[in-house]
Nucleic acid binder design. Structure first.
Lengths: 348, 348
DNA sequence: ACCGTTTCGGAAACGGATTACAGAAAAGGT
DNA sequence: ACCTTTTCTGTAATCCGTTTCCGAAACGGT
């Protein structure tokens, strides 16, 4: 059916060994004469030969594949991370196998298993959701390099941001602007990420000696729709918050819509801060104040770790990528410093 | 190093054939005694045996992989398409190899080549960009099933939407609201998709006997940043448009920001219509009027075609997925029909 | 106890590419 | 011309699962 190396060998009148040597950069130890090489290359071209990666992988014990598992492809944050991984992977001759679990445990484990069967050379697990349960013992059987992005681990390499600190800073920013009732739109307890962001929020309140009002903490699920509902719930309280901190930008967008639909305005009636700094956030009006976390860089760092591991310099590495509060208009701070509006000009 | 089927056989005191029969659903013709089966299963579990997919693929000539190539993972439209593909693929035991070309020709061809080397069982090429040049003769050498989403082809199966018709309807909608100067934010000539949308725009104007003002057509590139710049350029014309039709939602968002920054308002000063209906669009305020194109369904249809092809019922299939103009607030029509505001309640 | 079925398990071939080893051809030296 | 060295090419083993073909064991019947 498909063209094998033997077909090429026959067409060129040489042995399979010679074809192989031509196809890959011929080993210096076994050079191929230019005219022979030319004959082989011609045969490859005319037959349209494509070496079978299964056969290569079987023998070489490497697939040239990196597996990447993300919780939810429709959240723009993950594509950004993926792009970082992809850029570094591609530059080093690796290809990506990309899987989105949609936060479904069965799908998550099915995908991880499939990636292992494919003998990926490395595995990047993105996000801290509990749809993925990985004991160190389990991962130890994987026979591939593993790195986590945004998930704490005592045994494996991780690339993370300081969610607690960033959320604390974001909340403190609102408090510094004079807000005393700050709502928080959370997202369950299934994701480490959100748990940490919530902790940062609480720490900021405590640092100011404010007491925690549980009514001000509402559960979301990372989507606009639920952000909308959560904000609505907050704003319809007897004693509504004057500021809302949403655990991600998508929920912040939903919240912004809810504020508008209640006839209120951001930031005058309600200040709003998000988290992630996805591309759209700077183009909302009012532009969204949010925590920028260099998603692409997270991916790049993770892939670099993987490369080192693959090249035989293993070790548990832990990288922290810096975050930055991007102050735009939605928090109301720009009235004092118009420069905070990052996107007056289209240059992002 | 890693556990092979022979290790398992030895541990269980049986032959490799028996292990294989247990691991897969034992062929009816060669049953395995329950106690033997149990011994084997136990050995598999304790050793943590994972059959090598390279070896299987080599022998069985199938990889269980579907390759998918998208132009730009950061545009939310493509993740939606992917999810459609993924759902159907996953339900049928196929896994996805996902690649984003970032519209770079070298990367596109490198990825397609890599997917072919991996012997994917099927290939979905998404988008109509010219970074991918595929002659029928080239694809014919691929030795895998191929389906295009959003790219016309005389020789291969396609899943498409009626871009021309949808753009015509969207433009006509603006014209029906009384607009006579309607700007169009395009996106180069490299993508079929945008060429068709532009044609639809022009057809709508012609149908009304309006003459084309080239100044009203500005080039974008699918991103918010360039949408912003393009809208700004349009609105600063001596004779600016009263309505703008953007070739996708991301550019529409940029345009919305530009309108606001010029001290104008949507829809009162400028009516705005987008294309794609990405998740955020319903949560912008004003909510974005846009063309909804069932991205997920596109993916599902494509994958279904692939499955049929793989199962031995080949043939060139052409599927059209319906689009729908979702009238929200940004076009100014909702003043007449408040029901047009699709997202008063969070239920999307 | 013997024979004929049925049920199970094993040996071996196969898939396609890589590479160590050996052997052939060409080049170099006298 | 002949021998040594260098340069090239071919043979065959190997990677790991699957499956076909056979032989062995177990069972039932008489």
């Amino acid at each position: 059916m498909s063209i094998t190396i033997r077909d090429v060998a026959e067409a060129a009148g040489v042995s399979v060994a010679t074809v192989s040597r031509v196809a890959n950069g011929s080993t210096n130890a076994y050079p191929v004469r230019p005219q022979t090489r030319a004959r082989v290359l011609e045969a490859i071209a005319t037959l349209g030969y494509r070496p079978n990666d299964n056969a290569r992988g079987l023998l070489l014990k490497r697939s040239g594949l990196i597996g990447i598992v993300v919780p939810d492809i429709s959240n723009p944050y993950y594509p950004e991370v993926s792009r970082g991984i992809e850029d570094v992977a591609h530059a080093n001759g690796y290809k990506l196998m990309f899987c989105s679990t949609d936060r479904l445990p069965e799908r998550a484990s099915a995908y991880i298993e499939a990636l292992l069967l494919k003998r990926v050379d490395g595995l990047v697990i993105v996000g801290g959701g509990d749809e993925i349960q990985l004991s160190a013992a389990t991962v130890a059987t994987y026979d591939t390099k593993v790195v986590f992005i945004g998930r704490p681990s005592a045994s494996f390499s991780t690339v993370r941001i300081d969610n607690v600190g960033a959320a604390r800073d974001a909340t403190e920013h609102l408090l510094a602007l004079g807000h005393r009732r700050v709502g928080f739109i959370s997202a369950g307890t299934s994701s480490n990420t959100v748990i940490e962001r919530r902790r940062g929020y609480l720490e900021a309140l405590k640092a100011r000696g404010l007491e925690i009002d549980e009514d001000l903490i509402v559960d979301g699920d990372f989507t606009e729709a639920v952000g909308y509902a959560a904000a609505r719930q907050l704003l319809l309280l007897e004693n509504p918050p004057t500021a809302i901190f949403a655990a991600n930008d998508r929920m912040a967008l939903g919240a912004m819509a809810a504020v508008a639909d209640l006839g209120l305005s951001v930031p005058n009636d309600v200040a709003l801060v998000g988290f992630d700094d996805v591309p759209m956030s700077g183009y909302l009006r009012p532009a969204l104040t949010t925590v920028s976390l260099a998603a692409q860089e997270l991916g790049e760092r993770a892939m670099e770790i993987l490369l080192k591991d693959i090249e035989g310099r293993p070790g548990r590495r832990r990288v922290r990528v810096a975050t930055k509060l991007v102050v735009r208009d939605s928090c109301g701070a720009s009235a004092q410093s118009p420069a905070g509006r990052a996107l007056k000009a289209p240059a992002a």
